[in-house]
């Protein structure tokens, strides 16, 4: 059941992105920025967690889930450390993903070259 819901929720989030890309002049970079911000805002309003409860990875794997992750971290740290948590929470929570992206990105760039087209 997890898998079906992950497929549907994840697929639907991507579908919204596709509609935006095809019907507006937004570039993929705009979509990513928009979605990460949207995920953060929805999370702040308490609307994203219900989606995660339904869709599991279907809601956390899209970049909106990254925004949600940042906000969840900030709120946890604010609860624990007060004002300092405002500044530490986001990156602490997303540290794994961001570090992986930078390190694997660098590693892949060392190992591979773009293919001729």
């Amino acid at each position: 059941m997890d898998y079906v819901m992950a497929f549907i929720v994840g697929g639907l989030i991507c579908l919204v992105g596709q509609i935006l890309m095809d019907t507006t002049k937004l570039f993929p970079a705009h979509i990513l920025v928009l979605f990460v911000t949207l995920g953060a805002v929805l999370s702040g309003l308490g609307l994203y967690q219900p989606l995660v409860d339904i869709g599991k990875a279907g809601a956390t794997i899209p970049i909106t889930g990254f925004g949600h992750n940042l906000v969840t971290g900030v709120i946890q740290d604010v609860d624990q450390y007060g004002l300092l948590g405002v500044f530490t929470g986001a990156l602490r929570s997303a540290a794994g993903g961001i570090t992986a992206a930078i390190v694997f990105g660098f590693l892949m760039a060392l190992l591979f070259n773009p293919k001729s087209k």
Partner: peptide, 23 residues
Amino acid sequence: GAGSIVPITGFANSIVSPAMEFK
């Protein structure tokens, strides 16, 4: 399209592709 841009794998793609390209 967005099916592989929006997931976090697409975020990774957006990092690796310019990193490789501009070696």
